[in-house]
């Protein structure tokens, strides 16, 4: 029988531990496919966050380092400065990168650190049970905003990619989603580009992926996709937010 679909080489054959319907798995697959297609599995070091993707270091087929909560980009900086010819990427949740790790998110971009960041934005702290994140939408109910996020009280959500795009060292910034087949394909293109940017040594590349958390949103996986489209997409600027001329020429 002919095999028509399988795991990409960029992933190990360990079953994901993510909740059913969680789109972390889709993002993993996209990264795994890109690692395989660019033939960089053997040249790449990934840095895992603290969050639901804390065990992603078992799922990717490349070398991996586990960082403290929020510190993945500082760790990646150390690796890249030691091994400038290798490919280094971080895989981080929205809490990891836009709450506790914000300083590093700004400064790697400002320095033009030649690393790639995949940010998975599910608008909550998934790992710890669905608390409010800086990315939680106005009115969104979480365990620490039980009456809905009151933006007058705690501020409006941070659009981190938009902020990062203002920094000179960030040469490629994209915001995607994995809610439809079309958007999944688009997200893969962006992720691939973000790695190619690093292969050419052009500067810092960030791809944000709007993602779902059925467990903590309290919705079915399908309803989650709808919730993402109706509530997250209007808040976060979508698409390729920034591309320098060099990146456009890729």
């Amino acid at each position: 029988m002919q095999k028509v679909f399988g795991r990409p080489q960029g992933l190990t054959d360990l079953p994901f531990h993510y909740c059913p319907g969680c789109t972390h798995g889709i993002v993993h697959r996209l990264v795994g496919e890109v690692l395989e297609e660019l033939d960089i599995i053997g040249d790449t070091i990934g840095v895992a966050p603290v969050g639901c993707a804390g065990f992603s270091l078992d799922f990717f087929a490349c070398d991996f380092v586990g960082a403290a909560h929020g510190r993945a980009q500082a760790v990646a900086t150390g690796i890249k400065r030691a091994l400038p010819d290798k490919i280094v990427f971080t895989y981080q949740g929205d809490g990891d990168i836009a709450a506790i790790g914000t300083a590093h998110a700004i400064h790697v971009a400002a320095r033009g650190e030649k690393i790639t960041t995949i940010m998975v934005n599910n608008a909550v702290f998934g790992m710890t049970g669905g608390q409010m994140a800086p990315t939680t939408i106005g009115g969104q109910v979480t365990t620490t905003s039980p009456y809905g996020r009151d933006c007058a009280l705690v501020g409006a959500p941070i659009d981190l990619p938009k902020t990062v795009a203002t920094l000179n060292g960030a040469v490629y910034v994209a915001a995607c989603a994995v809610d439809t087949p079309k958007n999944i394909l688009q997200a893969k293109k962006c992720i691939k580009k973000a790695f190619q940017v690093q292969q050419r040594g052009l500067g810092y590349a960030l791809v944000s992926v709007l993602s779902t958390c059925p467990t903590n949103w309290g919705l079915s996986p399908v309803d989650c996709l709808k919730w993402l489209q109706e509530n997250m997409m209007p808040v976060y600027e979508m698409g390729e937010l920034k591309m320098t001329e060099e990146v456009k020429a890729l």
Binding site: I45, V47, V65, A67, A68, R71, A74, V75, A76, T77, G78, I79, K80, R81, A82, L83, A103, H104, I106, H107
Partner: peptide
């Protein structure tokens, strides 16, 4: 020069893994 000492020690952590 890191953005702070937290960044600096974590950069050391990354470099040391290599």
């Amino acid at each position: 020069q890191g953005e702070d000492e937290v960044a600096s020690i974590n950069m050391c952590y990354g470099a040391a893994t290599t």
